[in-house]
Amino acid sequence: MRTLLYSLVLLAFWLLLSGHFNNPLLVGLGLGSVLLTVFLAKRMNILDHESFPIQLSPKLPRFSLYLLKEISLSNLDVLRRILSLRKNPISPRVQTLPLPHKTDLGRVLYANAITLTPGTVTLELQGDNIIVHALSKESAASLATGQMAAAIPEVPAYANPAKGSPA
């Protein structure tokens, strides 16, 4: 199931990138490269719920919209601070925040979302804590409310990594 979907996504990607739709030789070669890639991925055993997370897809549009809003707002804030004429527009700080996510995928998404919004950068993951560098008191405070942590899509079926990866 996952393999079939992966092949279809790769084939669509190849077709859209190359733009060849009606030359049988070229499309055949593209199909061959797709099959080779899928074969290698199966052989390396990297095709699991982390490298190709289809289970996230129903929650992805809402998460993307939320991320887009956060990125825009924090961008405007950082730009305002860069252009500010005050002597000290920024108040940088290093903070340790709790990391509520249990799966690796959820943690990666959370850390990347923090880094992607300007004003906060993930420095380190330490056990159940995340160490964050924030540009200002306000950005650190908005992160500490846990609003972004709650927005991360995390699928409960994969909450226990010890169960192994159902492919």
Binding site: V78, L79, I82, I90, L116, P118, T120, V121, H133, L135
Partner: peptide, 21 residues
Amino acid sequence: GLLRFPDFYSRQHAAGTTDTL
């Protein structure tokens, strides 16, 4: 901002704005 900010970590935030928006 990459030129103006005082230390490495805060410069990363300025670089982040150009990377995203």
